[in-house]
Simulated assay, not measured.
Amino acid sequence: MPPMLQITPTLAIPDQELEERFVRASGPGGQNVNKVSTAVELRFDVARSPSLPEAVRERLLARRDRRITDDGVLVLSAQRFRTQDRNREDARERLAAVITAALAAPKKRVATKPTKGSKERRLGAKRERSTVKRHRSASGWERE
């Protein structure tokens, strides 16, 4: 059995679908940051992945997420830790979290009507505001 990223007991992504690139991390770190490529750039082709169910794929691609390219590739970069292995695990965990979030279908919104009390409160507030503004005008002084 090939190595896989297990999302749920029924959903797993084979490592062949994940593309990892190791790059130098930015930020503080002294000499180490200039010498060692510890940051990980994980790429996962959401649009062409045979492992993802169609509904999950559509939800992922519909998200307004800047990490998803125009081609439907999800790009995650991890550089929190000082070692390649920890950053690699971090990127894979974050990918699993993104996919898990897309697994659950959003609930349909049930339209409700405003209550009688809320309508009265809204109209009362409008009337109050109206009188405040009417009293501010120059002609408002003469009326009283």
Rank of each mutant, 00 (worst) to 15 (best):
N87D: 06
R63F: 10
S77A: 08
V56Q: 05
I68A: 04
G72T: 03
R86M: 09
R64A: 15
I68Y: 02
P53R: 08
T69Y: 02
P50D: 14
A55R: 12
Q84T: 06
L60I: 15
V75E: 00
A78V: 04
A47P: 01
L74V: 09
G72S: 03
R57G: 04
A55Q: 12
F81H: 14
P53Q: 11
R48D: 09
D45G: 11
D65W: 09
L52Q: 10
D45M: 08
Q79P: 00
V75H: 01
L76I: 15
S51C: 10
V46W: 04
R80F: 07
D70M: 08
P53C: 04
D71T: 13
E58C: 08
V75W: 00
D45A: 14
Q84L: 03
R63Y: 04
D45C: 12
S51T: 11
Q79E: 09
D71Q: 11
E58V: 09
R57H: 07
N87H: 05
I68F: 02
R64E: 12
R63V: 13
E58P: 01
D70H: 13
P53T: 10
F81Q: 05
E58Y: 06
R66A: 14
R64S: 15
V75D: 00
V75R: 09
D85V: 11
E54S: 12
R57V: 06
V73P: 00
A47R: 15
V46A: 07
L52S: 13
R59M: 08
L52V: 12
S77Y: 00
T83D: 01
F81Y: 15
R82F: 02
R80K: 14
D45S: 13
T69F: 05
P50A: 14
A62V: 06
L60E: 02
D65R: 08
D71C: 02
E54A: 15
V56Y: 05
S49P: 02
R63G: 12
D65S: 08
A78M: 01
L60Q: 06
D70K: 15
D71H: 11
T69A: 07
V73Q: 00
A47F: 05
R86D: 09
L60W: 05
R59I: 14
V46S: 08
Q84I: 08
N87K: 05
S51E: 06
G72K: 02
P50H: 08
D71G: 05
L60S: 13
Q79F: 02
E58G: 12
L61M: 14
R57I: 09
T83M: 00
A55D: 12
P50V: 13
Q79S: 13
D65H: 07
D70S: 15
V75F: 02
R64M: 12
D71K: 15
R63S: 14
L61A: 08
R64I: 10
R82S: 13
R80M: 04
R57S: 07
